[in-house]
Computed example of a mutant assay.
Amino acid sequence: MDRQALGFCGPGLMGAPMIGHLLRAGHAVQVWNRTPAKAEALVAAGASVAPAPRALAVNADVVLLCVADAAAVEAVVFGEQGLLGAGAAVRTRCIVDHSSIPPDVTRALAQRAAALGVAWVDAPVSGGVAGAQNGTLAIMAGGAAADVEAVAPILSAYAARVTHMGAVGAGQTTKLCNQAIVTATVCAIAEAVSLARRSGIDAAKLPEALAGGWADSTLLRTFVPRMTQDGLEPIGALRTFQKDVETIAAAAAQTGTPMPVSGAVQQILRLGAAMGLADADFSGFVEILQTPRGGA
């Protein structure tokens, strides 16, 4: 793998372990985060800290983003101190966005970057925190074939595979397909856990009982323990699932795609937010469904 000078914005639950893999692969990585302490925590591993995103564009050949939403992506790239903010001297020739944002927003941002001579690869990921930690993420990429091919060796530091899905925006659309499957499945698992509990059986034994059958899956084995045990570290917040499902709904409306299951999940997540569970772990679906007997 070619060792390159890289920038990385967003060392959070996913970004921090991804940066660790890049450093171990021998890349020089400069990091920026809105909360400086999260960036500074990576100095001991070999990263350097940038005072603002603009500094990354001056020093890095490729800048990778892993931030919360479309507004954050736009601010990091085109804000006053952004990577491509007005008057910025730019060494960067490609931005790789691991954030999950709407495909149409991605295309608009990529056009603005292209006008400044900077390529854009939308590269959302799947595999969760464990995948980031283990370096086994699945990356679905959108962009020019040459641009995806150029950054693939970098992404291989933390991805088991990088699949080129088409032009800019195609990666984000693929991630919406992924999230439609994931959120519906986690919701179904929560329903199964609730049914098991109310039927007087040990819900924690569902993965064992269903192992090898059609219901067996990574999600089943991940989320039943999270729904039946206390004290586990969170791996994400329901507000993230809600953001993604709202984006799915918008894409479905734009394309005339009927998605009744995602629509039901959307309403359950909105209910969870109204219940004050927006910051609950992904497994918080089961809390939304825990209406006391006789209370509904």
Rank of each mutant, 00 (worst) to 15 (best):
F78Y: 08
V73R: 07
V90K: 04
S126C: 10
V105W: 15
P36I: 10
A146W: 06
T106Q: 09
S100L: 05
Q133K: 15
A138H: 06
A50C: 04
E74H: 12
A89D: 11
V58Q: 04
A145K: 11
R91G: 00
A157P: 06
V73Y: 06
A44H: 09
G131I: 01
A55V: 06
P153T: 06
C94Q: 05
A55I: 01
W32M: 13
E40G: 03
A88G: 11
I154F: 07
P51Y: 08
A114V: 05
V49A: 00
D61Y: 01
A157V: 09
V58R: 01
S126Q: 03
G135N: 04
C66S: 07
T106P: 09
G82C: 12
A57T: 05
V63F: 00
T92R: 03
A113N: 01
G128Q: 04
V76T: 12
P51K: 04
Y158I: 12
V90Y: 03
A123E: 00
L83F: 12
A37N: 11
R91W: 13
Y158S: 04
L64P: 00
V118F: 10
A71F: 13
A52N: 09
S126V: 09
L116T: 06
S100Y: 03
A86C: 09
A89R: 14
L56Y: 04
A57S: 12
R107G: 13
A60Q: 00
H98G: 06
A70R: 01
C94V: 15
V125I: 07
V125N: 00
A115R: 15
T106H: 10
A132R: 07
A113F: 05
I101T: 10
G143W: 15
P51D: 07
G82V: 11
T136E: 05
L65Q: 00
P103Q: 10
G127H: 08
A41M: 08
A57M: 07
L84R: 05
E40N: 07
R54P: 01
V151D: 00
V76S: 01
A159D: 09
K38F: 04
R112T: 08
A45N: 02
G46Y: 04
A37R: 12
L83M: 12
A75F: 04
G135K: 01
P124A: 08
P124L: 07
R91F: 13
V148Y: 10
A119Y: 04
A115W: 13
T136S: 14
V58N: 03
H98N: 08
